[in-house]
């Protein structure tokens, strides 16, 4: 049963990806559609940031992830490269976890 779930979900996720790439080119010609699609990543990435940093299941949780996110924000403001941002976030969170 688990294999069925794994394979069905994997195929479904692939088809979702392919559907976007293979959709009729004209779909994006309407300015409203284009603007919406251009803005979707901003909305969803922001949602992923807060969901991954502040939630656990259906609960809002404040823990060392928030410390890591704050450290990452400082690193980004200082124009640190991506890898440095991640290392700073992970290091700060590990430190906060150890100290608390």
């Amino acid at each position: 049963m688990t294999w069925t779930v794994v394979l069905v979900a994997a195929v479904g996720c692939y088809l979702l990806k392919y559907a976007g790439l293979a959709a009729p080119a004209g779909l994006l010609d309407r300015p409203a559609v284009r603007r919406a699609v251009e803005l979707v990543p901003a909305a969803m990435l922001a949602a992923l940031v807060v969901v991954q940093a502040l939630t656990d299941g259906r609960a809002l949780v404040l823990d060392s992830r928030l410390v890591g996110l704050a450290a990452a924000t400082v690193a980004l403001l200082l124009r640190a490269p991506f890898l440095v941002v991640l290392l700073v976030a992970g290091g700060a969170a590990a430190l906060a976890h150890t100290l608390t």
């Binding site: 990543p41 901003a42 990435l45 922001a46 992923l48 940031v49 807060v50 991954q52 940093a53 823990d63 060392s64 992830r65 410390v67 890591g68 996110l69 450290a71 990452a72 924000t73 980004l76 991506f82 941002v85 991640l86 700073v88 976030a89 992970g90 290091g91 700060a92 969170a93 590990a94 906060a96 976890h97």
Partner: peptide, 15 residues
């Protein structure tokens, strides 16, 4: 704890 913090930081860096 470090791994858990890397994911939101990665999404923030992408945003």
């Amino acid at each position: 704890a470090a791994l858990d913090a890397v994911v939101p930081a990665a999404f923030l860096a992408l945003l």
